[in-house]
């Protein structure tokens, strides 16, 4: 057994060498892509050095003072840091959770619609908000959610409820932020699931029908298991984004009343780094976010492989 496998691997290796010798021109063809990637993705990473300096633009990276981990120490000693990090995690995880559920549900439902025009038009409509910028949507939501004259509160008033200051109350702010983000993105996010749904072998459904499985059972036993790899991929990839709670959105909706739960790393960096022109601090936080993102994505990948047995890459 052992030897057979060994022999096979040796054989495969030989084949690979032969293949490489034959295909040097193929490698030549990917060379420009490699060069570009190195030049524009890897070389700029050198800028990370700024995170360990007191960067001054006129002194440049070579001339600026080296301060080691000072920027990171500053980040973690800052009284508001832990609050801001927790807020970011809370908002990002809620968005991820509800976003995935909404996206998945929508994909499953729209997949059952047999009338093509209904399907297409609904898809187009839920797709559209994705292309609107938060600057525009921010204005629209502030208007809609106005505690006095806003449409939503007038509706609540007509139904006999008290008016709610959605953007001024910490808990409602969370609900609003997560809700509007899910509304904006679920249509777009469903594409990938729809593609996966289209790829499920119809023979499975035919077989299930023959066995007398109803729609519900088909969904539970065929559709969902077939989607698990896609869900795992999506979730794992999203993990790297878990420290991005959506700057555009929060920045356009938040205000001092909801700092307690609405202030996130990016808005914090904006106020301290960009307004104050503190580049090194901005880079330090960017690096911190990337490192956490990397750990999460590698961890998520390992977990997905161990628990569910799916290999993504």
């Amino acid at each position: 057994m052992q030897t057979v496998i060994q022999q096979e691997t040796i054989k495969k290796k030989r084949e690979r060498i032969v293949r490489r010798r034959d295909s040097w021109h193929l490698y030549l063809m990917i060379l420009p892509a490699i060069v570009l990637t190195l030049l524009f993705v890897y070389v700029p990473m050198g800028g990370i050095v700024m995170a360990f300096q007191e960067y001054k633009p006129y002194l440049g990276i070579t001339g600026s003072k080296w301060v080691g981990l000072d920027q990171f120490v500053f980040l973690f000693e800052y009284p508001d840091s832990s609050q801001v990090i927790w807020n970011t995690l809370r908002i990002a995880v809620l968005k991820l959770f509800f976003g995935t559920i909404a996206t998945l549900t929508f994909a499953l439902l729209i997949n059952e619609v047999r009338k093509k025009w209904v399907r297409n038009s609904v898809q187009t409509f839920v797709f559209l908000p994705h292309f609107l910028s938060w600057v525009v949507l921010g204005g629209i939501f502030i208007e809609l959610l106005d505690p006095k004259n806003g449409l939503v509160n007038q509706l609540l008033g007509a139904l006999g409820f008290e008016s709610i200051f959605f953007l001024g109350d910490n808990n409602w702010f969370l609900v609003t932020v997560v809700g509007t983000e899910v509304w904006k993105e679920f249509g777009y996010g469903s594409i990938i699931f729809l593609a996966a749904l289209a790829g499920i072998n119809p023979a499975l459904y035919e077989a299930a029908q023959l066995d007398g499985a109803n729609k519900w059972k088909q969904m539970w036993h065929i559709t969902l298991p077939s989607l698990v790899p896609t869900i795992v991929v999506c979730l794992t990839l999203s993990l790297s984004q878990v420290l991005n709670a959506g700057f555009d959105q929060i920045f356009n909706l938040y205000n001092p009343l909801v700092y307690a739960k609405g202030d996130i790393i990016d808005t914090f960096v904006y106020r301290i780094g960009l307004i104050g022109g503190n580049y090194s601090f901005g880079t330090a936080i960017g690096l911190f976010k990337s490192v956490v993102g990397l750990i999460l994505i590698v961890g998520g990948y390992r977990l997905a492989y161990k628990v569910a047995g799916y290999k993504i890459f």
Binding site: Y78, P79, D80, N255, P256, Y259, R271, I275, G276, N278
Partner: peptide, 16 residues
């Protein structure tokens, strides 16, 4: 540079 953000936030919070 190191404290303005903190102070400003504190002020906005309290005043609001």
């Amino acid at each position: 540079t190191s404290r303005n953000e903190l102070l400003k936030k504190m002020q906005m919070d309290t005043f609001t």
